[in-house]
Nucleic acid binder design. Structure first.
Lengths: 106, 106
DNA sequence: TATATATGCAACTATTCGGTTTCACAAATT
DNA sequence: AATTTGTGAAACCGAATAGTTGCATATATA
């Protein structure tokens, strides 16, 4: 059972759940209303998201409110960093090329 | 056959391949040297990465050099944007709290 | 207390996934 | 021309995945 954030966000339904509860915490039933699959299926997705800490359950009476653990999402951003550096460098290089052309025009 | 970037980066081997060829384009054989699985397995991963445009093949004689398509990776960054807004907002709110405390100390 | 509601868990199923082995083909080398 | 080298594709396999149905449990409500 691999269970890391990358595998978690691979599923489109789970990404959708993340988007929905980003705005406000919600119960599994309320979440399931947004999809045309069973509540149990959503429950399973929530378990996976909870296991890798992308989501946090909070019991309130017999209801459980799930909310986004925004800190965990930063890990994806962190993974992007080296690649971001590459595209920023390329952008700067393009910038240099453009300013060189500008100078030549002068 | 689902085939989007999120499913592509879900696999750790594929993420490793991306990191390796980020520095310089490489042939499948050269890439496979970094892993203890068969070249064919790497070839399969490269097919998936190519299909969703995260990687670009360039034939050179009988060799094929694979390089990173950095532009495509930006799509993940783009997906992160709404979440980034959330954590930036929270950071600002924390910042406000801190400056309020500071003022009170004065 | 009896019933309805909210939820998670287990068992099952079809499909997908990552890997291997085997093969085919084209380019380089002898 | 024969052989070696670099590569992709197909067939197969075991494990994982996403979904379902059915059940158990706990909290609210009548």
């Amino acid at each position: 059972m691999r269970r890391d954030i990358f595998q978690a966000i691979a599923d489109p339904t789970r990404r959708a759940i993340m988007t929905i509860i980003a705005l406000q915490a919600m119960t599994p039933n309320a979440i399931a209303d947004h999809f045309n699959c069973t509540r149990q299926s959503i429950s399973k997705h929530l378990r996976i998201l909870t296991e890798c800490k992308l989501v946090k359950p909070e019991q309130q009476g017999r209801e459980i409110y799930y909310s986004l653990e925004i800190e965990k999402i930063k890990e994806i951003d962190k993974w992007l960093n080296p690649f971001r550096k590459i595209w920023e460098t390329r952008f700067n290089q393009l910038d240099n090329v453009l300013s060189t052309i500008k100078k030549q025009k002068k």
